[in-house]
Design a binder for these strands. Sequence first.
DNA 1: TGACTTCGTGTTGTTTGTACACGTACTATC
DNA 2: GATAGTACGTGTACAAACAACACGAAGTCA
Lengths: 233, 233
Amino acid sequence: MPVATSYTYKYPRGALTVDCVVFGLDDSALKVMLIQRGPPPFEGKWALPGGFVRVDETLDQAARRELEEETGLRQVFLEQLYTFSAVDRDPRERVVSVAYYALINLGEHPVQAASDAREAAWFGVHDVPSLAFDHGEILQTALDRLRGKLRYQPIGFELLPKKFTLSQLQHLYELVLERELDKRNFRKRVLSMDLLIETDEVQQDVAHRAARLYRFDERKYRRLTKAGFHFEL
Amino acid sequence: MPVATSYTYKYPRGALTVDCVVFGLDDSALKVMLIQRGPPPFEGKWALPGGFVRVDETLDQAARRELEEETGLRQVFLEQLYTFSAVDRDPRERVVSVAYYALINLGEHPVQAASDAREAAWFGVHDVPSLAFDHGEILQTALDRLRGKLRYQPIGFELLPKKFTLSQLQHLYELVLERELDKRNFRKRVLSMDLLIETDEVQQDVAHRAARLYRFDERKYRRLTKAGFHFEL
DNA sequence: TGACTTCGTGTTGTTTGTACACGTACTATC
DNA sequence: GATAGTACGTGTACAAACAACACGAAGTCA
């Protein structure tokens, strides 16, 4: 550890943080993970997980580090969203924040209690309390981005288990896009892209006829993408 | 002016800059504006216009200020692109840069010589020299974004004069998307959106039959957008 | 007046999108 | 073991959108 206890610059510098909007899919709703703040400002309020960027790490690294420190999540889909810079967005001092969004499957990524004992919880995206800082605006931006991207990039699969049924996939699209889709037409389109691998397994433990499980063929998708293929649902 | 000559913090802080990718449309090609660097590092190399963010301004404000200072451009279309944060992207010290892209019409926005005497020039986007810092990567990201957005947002009009011909519009799409479009089909689609206002003027000073001039109906576009309309070309 | 350039316009065949219903497989309960 | 309940998996027909394609008219210039 360096002994230095302060750093001096010729001009004032704002601080730089990352904030993560973590989306998860419950069987019934699209959820977002929030953390209850300990220290002021906004003590006790809910906020997005995030924190200060260190001087020797990239923003992606910072986002992944904070995500793991505060929620235990590792190796998730994570993408930069937007950089927020309102001068008074943090009441303490100037803070610019680079927002990220992450997509995880709730079943395969149980969220551990945060290591520093702050409480983490899932909220339905249409049922979040008032948030600290400008995190409400960040969340709204993330939702818009997710809705936009879902149509023309295969990011929805990040919200599902590796093996999933076509009904689960359709349900996910209906939840995010907020409109109903026709079952037969949806299946026709999805399968016509030829990017799903039909496994020989079916759903377990359901109280009705079990549906077939599929996997997303990511290798094939990447191959096709390089050849100019354009995903769209 | 404050008397203080230094600012001290408990932890080291990187600097924050903005960089602008300014696209302009010449009659024959899509161009990008570059500035020749004076001081080291990368002295004499071409780079994107940009500079340090002040502690009391937003990123948008910083981008507009730098754009005006270095190129004289004001009141242009400007949108945040991405934030670049490779630890060694600036050899002097840690610098995180928020990239913006701007779209201007070359005829209506002649670029003045930069006030601080650095040279500014336009380059065809496929004909740029090796750039300072990671500006080559930033430019490539901006090009990808422009190509992607052109399809589903009416940003192309920013590159044209207020009154333009359908051929100019088509030409722009062909230049950016890098493929030929069918004239009759293009016109049919554009006009069917009913967002262009036919003026009673025609092109001037051309050595052939003059084409009719149109204007983009931005008010109507905004109105329709609020009602759920989705632009697509 | 003739040569040259760009403008502006419709139709047809093909592909894609959309609307729509029912028998089957399996589980749980009585 | 019969029955009720639930979600699964499938095809067709009509409408709309897309793609391919050519030529006469308007205007300038020499």
